[in-house]
């Protein structure tokens, strides 16, 4: 019952977000799959998921915390850049999005074709990555 209500709520949110993303031109209509992530106590859940090679995934993040977070997904270079970067806020664009406290935001990411490739995602706000706010997507 409750989960059904949440599903409907999430679906409604997704519809809204999809519209926003579409208008912003940051996602594109071509997502093959949607993965929903929840942030609670500065942790991603799930912190791991598998994707098929070459999949374009829409990542929908629900931030349940009273503080802001972000989702950055990409290779080591991307994470290094964001960890050292000073950009405090990321508008929704492929592979990165800021999620204000208590809100839901989405971004998209297209995975490569190499089976077994591990792509990390996480939050690079000060101290968050080190705190363990990260996860891994595996191309399988």
């Amino acid at each position: 019952m409750m989960s059904g209500r949440r599903t409907r709520l999430a679906a409604a949110v997704l519809v809204g977000l999809a519209g926003t993303v579409g208008l912003a031109g940051c996602g594109g209509p071509g997502a093959d799959r949607t993965v929903e992530l929840t942030v609670h106590f500065s942790r991603f859940s799930p912190d791991h998921f598998d994707v098929a090679p070459g999949t374009t995934v829409k990542l929908v993040v629900h931030n349940l915390d009273p503080i802001g977070h972000e989702l950055i997904i990409g290779d080591a270079g991307v994470h290094e850049r964001h960890e050292k970067g000073t950009e405090a806020y990321h508008p929704p664009r492929p592979g990165e999005v800021s999620i204000p406290a208590g809100t839901t935001r989405a971004t998209t990411f297209t995975f490569g074709n190499t089976v077994g490739e591990r792509v990390e995602f996480g939050c690079h706000l000060p101290g968050h990555w080190a705190y363990g706010m990260r996860g891994v997507a595996t191309v399988a």
């Binding site: 106590f41 500065s42 915390d65 009273p66 406290a101 208590g102 705190y131």
Partner: peptide, 21 residues
Amino acid sequence: AQAVGQWATDNGFLLTPDAPE
């Protein structure tokens, strides 16, 4: 916790990642 954390955020505090818990 949500309300106090939100208040802190709204008032310019940058809470550390362990703050919510």
